[in-house]
Design a protein around this nucleic acid. Sequence first.
RNA 1: GGGCGGUUAGCUCAGCUGGGAGAGCAUCGGCCUUACAAGCCGAGGGUCACAGGUUCGAUCCCUGUACCGCCCACCA
Length: 888
Amino acid sequence: MDTSSPETLAKAYEFKEVEKRWYAAWQADKTFSAKMDPERDSFSIVIPPPNVTGVLHVGHALNNTLQDVLIRYKRMMGLNALWVPGTDHAGIATQNVVERQLASEDKTRHDLGRDKFIERVWQWRQEKGGTIINQLKHLGCSCDWDRERFTMDEGLSKAVRTVFVRLFKEGLIYKGDYIVNWCPRCHTALADDEVEHEDKKGKLYHIRYPFADGSGHVIVATTRPETMLGDSGVAVHPDDERYNHLKDIGIKLPLTDRTIPVVFDHHVQRDFGTGALKVTPAHDRDDYEIGLRHDLEIIKVMDDSGIMNDAAGAYAGLDRFDCRKKIVADLEEQGFLEEIEDYDHAVGNCYRCHTVVEPTTSLQWFVSVKPLADKAVKAVHSGDINIHPKTWDNTFYAWMNNIRDWCISRQIWWGHQIPAWTCDDCGQLMVEETDPSSCDKCGSSKLSQETDVLDTWFSSALWPFSTLGWPDNSEELKFFYPTSVLITSFDILFFWVARMMMMGLHFMDEVPFKDVYLHALVRDKHGKKMSKSTGNVLDPLVVMDEYGTDALRYTMTAFAAQGRDIRLSEERIEGYRHFINKIWNAARFSLMHINSCDASVTADVQPKEMALAHRWILSRLNKAINEVHDSLAGFRFNDTASSIYQFIWHEFCDWYLEWTKSDLYGDDATKKAEAQAVLFTVLEAVLKLLHPIAPFVTEEIWHFLPGERSTIMTESYPVANPDWDDNEAEETAELIMGVIGGIRNIRSEMQIHPSAEIEAFAICPDIKKGQRLGEHSTSIMGLTRTSSLEIIESGAVPKGAATYIFEDMEIYVPLKGLIDVDKEIAKLNKSKQKIDKQYNQTNGKLNNEKFLANAPDDIIAKEKAKLEEFTTKLSKIDDSIARLQDLA
RNA sequence: GGGCGGUUAGCUCAGCUGGGAGAGCAUCGGCCUUACAAGCCGAGGGUCACAGGUUCGAUCCCUGUACCGCCCACCA
């Protein structure tokens, strides 16, 4: 391990150099590499493969930080932890990138031809495809890079082919001519969930369709008048009395010379518009289905680019939107246009390029997902797969139970080409794992392979087992499948997670993962989705550069509360940078005092006989450790982050370090050694606790600690030591902190300069408490800069002293008449009011017979104790006020 | 149209199975106290959206209302 760190810690943490140095060292030493030690359990995660075209955004930062936190934690817990990294070939997205590159050279992919184009994409991937991988490294991800995969690599391609062929032979993949979502820009079909619906302000055109016999007309309403050229019928509801008489009448379709029939279909909503619907089976999903039911003609009026074709007659050659304008103008001119109404409706857009999708019929490949979906539903029902947070279960079921067949063919070039061949001579269709050389029916050697490629999600659906070597029965597959947990954003629950469940259950006969943790979407601080076009993107690379990777990771972990959007603000990141620096300085301070220690002093710390501060901090450390384990087990990452933050800053730094200084700086060798041992112990534990979230700063500090050290990554994670639990120490410490708080409050309120010496008194009627305070008076004096502290059982507070009430005690500081009487009285009255309210509340409960009858005993006891406390406080306050009034 | 989530301090958010409202930032006051001014000490600030209900007791459970957000859906 490379430990070429500077000799001493710099005054402030310089993350840039540290991050670079340690990541390189980890990689060189292969500390991320997963072992398959049969003695230990496995823990595995497959990364949601980012698009190979991707650049790291905050969503990735969140997603991968959480995965790394878990992986590092489990690794330190002694499990064989494997995190499989990789990228997705992202069919349309990648093809778009390379096509744009070509466009800048005034070329199209057609100029190159398919083979050359694909070569070009591979070349692009070779040069630019590593960007996001490097960025994940920048983020500190401890992926097993030797096991990195790509959805188009040889192994995964083999898996894809095997799956396709098996599903086909099982009758679960079929080819058919159906209406699909077509992107006229990408020139490909899209799956239903690849279409994004967006509300747009549009128009509803009411058009007069005359009867063929000239006896009248019917008015239809449409948002897309240009499709009327493909109309092959008008539909009305069978029970709609208004249209009973249209049974045998033909409709003369305006702007054309065609006559179309009226059909009666239950799908028509009688109360919408006029209750008459124009039917365009070739360009509308519903119309398609109506058309099927009534055997209507399918007339495509556009080509693959959304340009009107020959079937559109005089409108051929026009873009669909230009055509709309022309049609409307012509209808108007010829008197067919009844009315134009403003109308808001949802328009489907391509999720990649946002072009308006055109529903149209075409020959595509589909997966019958119903039988696969049923298995996935069962797995979630039975608890074989647990979705966190559970609120997603219902959404999941709803979608899975209404799932439609999945259109898996895409008319692009970059992707897994469908392994199907058609015989040019006899038309025989063959789907094979190995390329066929001749037709298995007629023997002809003239075979043409399907030109379509598969939907990108088809290959990512296999990710949990294909990356582990399937279809080969590899050691990895046996050892690491099923994976332990999948961490991803909820927006790809259906695109990806559900499909992995379906494929995993079908081909492995086992769930692909036991837990699914769905995290929120990262938005900007106003709750808007981050996007380049609105310019509200917070670039994690810039953040890492400015605040450090650990600060970004800590922010992500702290923000990862379940079931919410995350609104990221730079202020919060800055706050966590301060925290990282705080740790750095705490370590710097600690090292000043433990540098000379032997590392063995931490081996077996038994605090029972030690000073209070040590017993207290070790007991608190136990609590923090338990909170970390509990919260991580429940995927409550934010709780993990806050437990550690709270412990380090407000217990370890604010109290423990200050409290121990007197021993560390003092002359008593025994006390000093004790303090050093505990300080050393807690610091080590804290670094380990923190390491999964903040790997860099912890690793750097780790190597400054005395003793021979290898990476902190493989140290064992802290577990609570039962010998350190000490409730009595915690109680006593709270008592002392309360008194210290009281004295500090007086000092501050009375504006006594921090370095001015004061004398303090505590009237403590409880003898035992008084004794305990007495034992620790030196600590109290040290932490409050008082020259003397007298603890008395009873007595009167002298006139002109400032008072603070803590529990049943009165703490006072004589001020020789320097206090502002009115101000003091006002202050006391205010706190009296507060306590009065609490008193009344508690008193009310205790006077309520029903409360006494129904509430559990421990709650009643607690309320009684509260009442006593409030009563004492109130009387103390009254005393103080009386004394002050005397003075006035 | 259906479903889900949100509404808590000025801002961003915690608050797990109902029992004395929390954090960070911001604000105010005091401190360069020998790890840290990226810091320390102290303080102020909330009818937990609104209206009902269940309960001895509700920020938490139930119903409804309002506003905000998301997802799904075949009303052209």
